[in-house]
Nucleic acid binder design. Structure first.
Lengths: 193, 193
DNA sequence: CTATTTAGATAGAACGGTCAGTATAGAAAG
DNA sequence: CTTTCTATACTGACCGTTCTATCTAAATAG
């Protein structure tokens, strides 16, 4: 991987995150990255491809970072809590300006499959991952059901953390998640009640 | 209110909802609304003002529609459930393409206070409203805390309903909401446990 | 009732700016 | 010598916005 290409993805990620995909033009990326115009087009056929590369990189970075936070945890409950804690740390970052996948989905919608596909893949991977964790606590159909609720909580927390500039929303979301999990465990033990 | 102005807001709302604010140009709105260029600029100083008008209208429409669904309900629980049910109906609409306020927040961020203000006002109004409802079930600090969780659930459900094309996510969100509320009521009755 | 004014709406051209993408020629570096 | 990057100018297309000139219908005045 060429250092110039690397630089482009890095700067583009930052600019897209802070201002969005449409408002950030090629020229601005080139200026801030200190890269010539043709160098960009040697590495990426078009702006859309650069966006796709940014999203793909972001996907792998986030998943790796999350895995590093979760793996040390012993119990399923602690692992799930680690995911929410990771989000709280993220929300507190000065550069935090929402989830890049959500932004891509909001700006491009389903019209651009190349771009929206990454956002959906991210959601599906996360949900499947949390389903696996929940299998240690719950039966199969319930695990998937609760996982999708946890995904809702994470997505909602990400939205509201940005809107309200409040990182502690992640903790509130985790409290809700724990309540839902506990109630489900209780219900599974007493199916008659 | 001039019928042309009305028409512009209506068509613009539809186009912005389906394709986003940046990708939809003035020309397209004019063409689909069947309105002359200068008519638009007689009613709105700029595109940004049209966007603000669209968001403002949307805000009042949504709140009115929600109130109509909630008011007939007798108990606080039923009222809250009605809010989630309203979302499920909305998610199932063929034209559903996410929340316009979220989209505005995603596309314009905090850089454009005129525009992002409506989105934040919407969230705050909803949270305050749900806090009032919850006061029938919970004490003061808990009511506000749970209300912000319900807001997280609604926002997350809206995001995921669009991403997964699944309106029933609203029901899952309500199930989670109910679990959180019930657990909080229980905890308030047994403060020692 | 007729003439005149007024207010809105219309179509279309045009402006300045920006944008993504292309072309070309030269510099740097191994 | 070959590959990569740089610099700059350019192309079309599109964008938001302004301008002008024309049309229509209703209100007003004589």
């Amino acid at each position: 991987m060429s250092p110039k290409k690397e630089q482009l993805i890095l700067i583009a990620t930052d600019l897209f995150s802070r201002h969005g995909f449409h408002p950030v033009g090629i020229d601005r990326i080139l200026a801030e990255a200190g890269v010539a115009r043709m160098t960009l087009y040697n590495h990426f056929p078009s702006k859309d491809d650069l966006i796709a590369a940014v999203l793909d990189r972001r996907y792998h970075d986030i998943m790796a970072s999350l895995r590093a936070c979760v793996e040390p945890m012993a119990s399923a409950k602690e692992q799930l809590r680690a995911i929410f804690a990771w989000h709280e740390t993220w929300f507190g970052t000065p550069q935090f300006s929402g989830c890049l996948f959500e932004r891509a989905l909001a700006e491009f919608g389903t019209d651009y499959p190349n771009i929206s596909a990454v956002a959906i893949r991210y959601k599906k991977t996360m949900t499947a991952w949390m389903t696996d964790m929940l299998k240690a606590l719950l039966q199969e159909p319930a695990a998937a059901r609760i996982a999708s609720i946890l995904m809702i909580l994470l997505d909602g927390a990400t939205i509201d953390a940005r809107a309200f500039h409040d990182p502690t929303i992640a903790t509130k979301a985790w409290n809700a998640a724990e309540a839902v999990i506990e109630q489900e465990i209780l219900a599974s033990k007493k199916p008659s009640a």
